[in-house]
Measured scan of single mutants.
Amino acid sequence: MSIQHFRVALIPFFAAFCLPVFAHPETLVKVKDAEDQLGARVGYIELDLNSGKILESFRPEERFPMMSTFKVLLCGAVLSRVDAGQEQLGRRIHYSQNDLVEYSPVTEKHLTDGMTVRELCSAAITMSDNTAANLLLTTIGGPKELTAFLHNMGDHVTRLDRWEPELNEAIPNDERDTTMPAAMATTLRKLLTGELLTLASRQQLIDWMEADKVAGPLLRSALPAGWFIADKSGAGERGSRGIIAALGPDGKPSRIVVIYTTGSQATMDERNRQIAEIGASLIKHW
C-alpha cells in the first residue's frame, strides 16, 4: 500500500482519535458579512469528516447552483462504474471539434489522439474542462443518470439537468442544476469515506481534487503551510461562485467545507476574496 493510499485508508482512524471539535460562531459572522459585502445569498456548511456531524452552517438547506462543483460527483459516478466493471479508466475516447464547448483548455489539445477516461476526469476536476465533463456525462448516460446515481446514494436534493455550459445559467428560483450545502457536503463525505467506492477509487477521487489547479484564489489562499486540501470550485452566471473541499491540518483532511453564493453584482475577484476570507476565519478558529 502506498503512503497516499495509507493516508486515505486511515482518515477515519486518525479522526477518531482527534480531540473533540467545537464550532466557532466567528466564522458564521464572516459568512454573514460576506453576504453584506456581496449583496447576495451565501450558503455555508462545515462537517466533521469522521462523524458527519454538522459543526457550523448557514442557509444549509437553500438551493444554490452547483456550477462546476458537480464534476466531482460526476467522476465519482464514473469511478463507481469502474468498480462495477462497467468502465475502464484506460479506455480512450475520441471526439471532434464539434464536441468542444466553451472553456476546454485540455480537451482542445487532444482532438487528434483523444483522451482516456482517467485523463478526462483529471481534466474535468483539476482544470474544470467543460468538454471533458460533457464527454464523461455521455459515458454514464447524461445528466439524468448522474441525478439517479445521487438518488441511489441517498441524495434526493442534488440534481443535474443540463450539460456544460448551460448548467451554469443560475436563474433565480430555478431548481435545475442545483444542490443544497448540506446535501453536497453529505454526498461528498460519502464519496470520500464511505463504502460506495473502493479504496482505490476513493484515493483516485481525492487525488484529482488535491491536484486542483484553478481554485488557488479561494480556500487555498488562506491555508497555512502543512495543511491538506482537496477541492473543486465552480463559477456561473449572475454572480455565482462555489467551492467544495476536504481539508485539515497535519497533512490530512478532517472536515468537509461547502460554500456557495449566487445573485451578486460583485466582480469575480471580490467573490473570490470573500470566500478566501471565510476560509481564513475557519482556519483561525479551527
Rank of each mutant, 00 (worst) to 15 (best):
D36W: 15
R273G: 12
V42P: 00
F149G: 04
I45D: 02
T261H: 06
F149Y: 10
G216V: 07
E102Q: 15
L136F: 00
H110C: 08
P143L: 04
T267Y: 07
F22I: 07
I54L: 11
I256P: 00
T198V: 07
L10I: 12
G76R: 00
E175T: 15
V257Y: 05
E102M: 12
A222W: 06
V29N: 15
T131E: 03
Y95C: 03
V214D: 02
R271L: 12
S128Y: 00
S96V: 11
W163K: 11
A124S: 10
Q97P: 14
G43E: 00
K284G: 12
V29M: 11
L205W: 03
V82P: 01
M180S: 15
L74Q: 02
A185E: 00
W286K: 02
D207M: 11
A235C: 04
I140D: 02
Q88K: 12
F22K: 09
E108I: 11
I125H: 03
T261W: 04
T262Q: 07
K53I: 14
E210K: 11
N168A: 08
N272C: 04
E108K: 12
R271I: 10
R189Y: 15
V117A: 04
A225K: 14
G52N: 08
G85N: 11
T186V: 14
V257L: 09
L188S: 06
R273V: 10
F22P: 05
S104G: 06
V42W: 09
S281P: 03
A280M: 15
G251N: 15
K32T: 09
Y95N: 01
A222C: 15
Q203K: 12
A182R: 14
R59G: 04
L205K: 00
T193K: 15
D48A: 08
S51P: 03
M67Y: 02
C75E: 01
R238L: 10
S104H: 06
A132P: 00
M209I: 02
E56H: 08
H5Y: 12
P12T: 12
L47V: 13
I11E: 03
K232W: 00
A148G: 14
E46S: 13
C75M: 06
D177E: 01
G90K: 14
G242P: 00
L38H: 07
C18G: 10
P143W: 02
L191E: 03
K144H: 10
G76Q: 01
R241V: 03
Y260L: 10
S128W: 00
V29W: 15
A183L: 07
V117Q: 03
L55F: 10
G263A: 08
D161V: 07
K252D: 09
L136G: 02
I256H: 00
M184Q: 04
G279W: 03
A148T: 14
R92D: 06
G248C: 02
A132M: 00
A230R: 01
T126N: 06
E277H: 08
I283T: 09
P172L: 12
Q86C: 11
G85R: 10
